[in-house]
Amino acid sequence: MPDMTNKSPDNLLNVVDLSKKYGQNKYVISGFTASFTPGSATGLMGPNGSGKTTFMRILSGAAFPTNGRVEYGDKDIHQGLHEYLKYVGIVGDASDLPQFLTAEELVEGIMRSRVLWNSGSVAYISELFDQLELDERRSTLIGTYSSGMMQKTMIAAAICAHPRVLLLDEPFRALDESAVDSVLKILNEFKKNGGMILISSHQRTILESLCDRYIDFPVLIS
């Protein structure tokens, strides 16, 4: 995994006075400001429907804020998504995975699309799946996977492109105990190398070995 210990302002993720509402309904997030630094892991906590997924969708560029902005370095991410997404790995809803590809093909496609494919990539992918404990079924179609296997595939897809920022929405969903330990090990390694993690989960105890701070949702600052 590459060393990303550079903690210059260029690598900061700043959320500035962020608000989001759906249609004419009340605000899900209101006036939220925060800063995230490289080499840190932040846990997003809160009950269902408190706005964690909306916040993740805004940070990933899949939703646009009603007011406020999100900056990566000095750039507003929503004004240059292709550039920003080069540095981002995302774990979202596993049902979004393409059903007619194998996990290996998916990760290869992502690496090729991001021009990261080289002679060592096959070994790298194999090692990544070994770490995630995704067995030989990594070369069978994703449509035949269990929910835990799909979750592992999504985590591999998020990590494979050597991102600087990881946005993880409930990454431990459907994982067994051993897989949770493996994922935590990978994430701690990523953080140690200067990666920035934002992770939502209902299980604070699991996050204790990873997170430096927590944000409690809903974030409604009037």
Binding site: K21, Y22, G23, Q24, N25, V28, T54, R57, G61, A62, A63, F64, H78, Q79, G80, L81, H82
Partner: peptide, 26 residues
């Protein structure tokens, strides 16, 4: 030159319009 931004923004809007999160009926 800004096609990526429009692609994600319009997806984001129509996704919200279709899934209607947070609302009972559009």
């Amino acid at each position: 030159s800004t096609l990526d931004v429009h692609f994600y923004h319009s997806h984001g809007f129509y996704h919200e319009l279709f899934r209607n999160p947070g609302g009972r009926s559009d």
